[in-house]
């Protein structure tokens, strides 16, 4: 059964050294702050398929031992400063990927198979730096080389959504990659803007936009839990705040100051 817990209790479910899948949309920033407060280390981040502020936060907080990603960037606010610095210093094990390969790896785990074939990629140096990816001759159908990537089964998937009901069904709208993360992961932790009393599985329309509680271990309430990132149908990206972060996080000291204020603010809101 899905448990409804406090944000602190949700964060406490993560253990050092675990692999953590994080999305592009529906980013659990409040939970990320709570996770950093636990002093966690050694996380293996799996960006589905890229990340922005969340990965940069966790990297800057020295919580990350490894990262698999197709990109880390603050988008229009520019490069992700802590990621860029950490790459230069070799501060973590870096596994470069390409967006659909990460999605294909999750799909393999979802289906319980060891690998997934994927189009394209041949000719890219990613194949040189990814010895775990193979080029095989297609064993069936058209005769041609095809890339296969191993299954990705994260220990934990973490995301933020608008609503959950009391049973732990979570409204994800059309953001099906959030369901994909949950299918592949051993555990799924979700924060939400609100918990509703009605059953989200009640009507066909509502159920179609839901990740059922079957896949969800715990839900915590976190109003504005994606801030300063956006949440669909709820709030826009706080671009001024992201620009402020981008400027401050250029140095490790600036990042520390930003993070400290961010954590204080979260404690005050909670």
């Amino acid at each position: 059964m899905t448990e409804i817990v406090s944000l602190e209790a949700l964060a406490a479910r993560m253990a050092p050294g675990q692999s953590l899948a994080i999305p592009v949309t529906g980013v659990a920033m409040a939970a990320t702050a709570a996770l950093i407060e636990t002093g966690i280390t050694g996380l293996k981040l799996i960006c589905v398929p890229t990340s922005s502020l969340q990965a940069d936060f966790l990297i800057g907080a020295k919580a990350v031992a490894a990262i698999e990603t197709s990109a880390v960037s603050l988008g229009e606010a520019g490069s992700a400063p802590r990621f860029t610095a950490a790459v230069r210093e070799g501060a973590f094990a870096l596994t470069d990927s390409t967006c659909p390969a990460i999605l294909a790896g999750l799909l393999a785990a979802q289906k319980g198979v060891p690998f997934m074939p994927i189009a394209g990629i041949i000719g890219s140096d990613l194949l040189k730096v990814r010895p775990d990816w193979k080029v095989i001759d297609s064993p069936v159908g058209e005769q041609r080389p095809v890339v296969v990537v191993p299954a990705i089964a994260p220990d934990v998937a973490l995301f933020h959504a608008p609503e959950a009901d009391r049973a732990g069904n979570v409204k994800i709208g059309r953001h099906r990659e959030l369901a994909g993360m949950a299918y592949a992961a051993k555990h799924t932790l979700v924060t939400v803007e609100r918990i509703v009393d009605h059953n989200l599985m009640e009507t066909e329309d509502s159920a179609a936009a839901v990740l059922p509680s079957l896949y969800v271990d715990a839900v915590a309430l976190a109003p504005r839990g994606a801030w300063p990132l956006s949440l669909w149908d709820e709030y826009e990206t706080d671009t001024a705040e992201i620009a402020r972060y981008a400027a401050m996080a250029r140095s490790d000291e600036g990042f520390r100051a930003y993070l400290s204020a961010f954590l204080t603010r979260r404690r005050e809101v909670a």
Partner: peptide, 8 residues
């Protein structure tokens, strides 16, 4: 940032 979906 990284290769995004370009390789594909």
């Amino acid at each position: 940032p990284g290769s995004f979906g370009s390789a594909y």
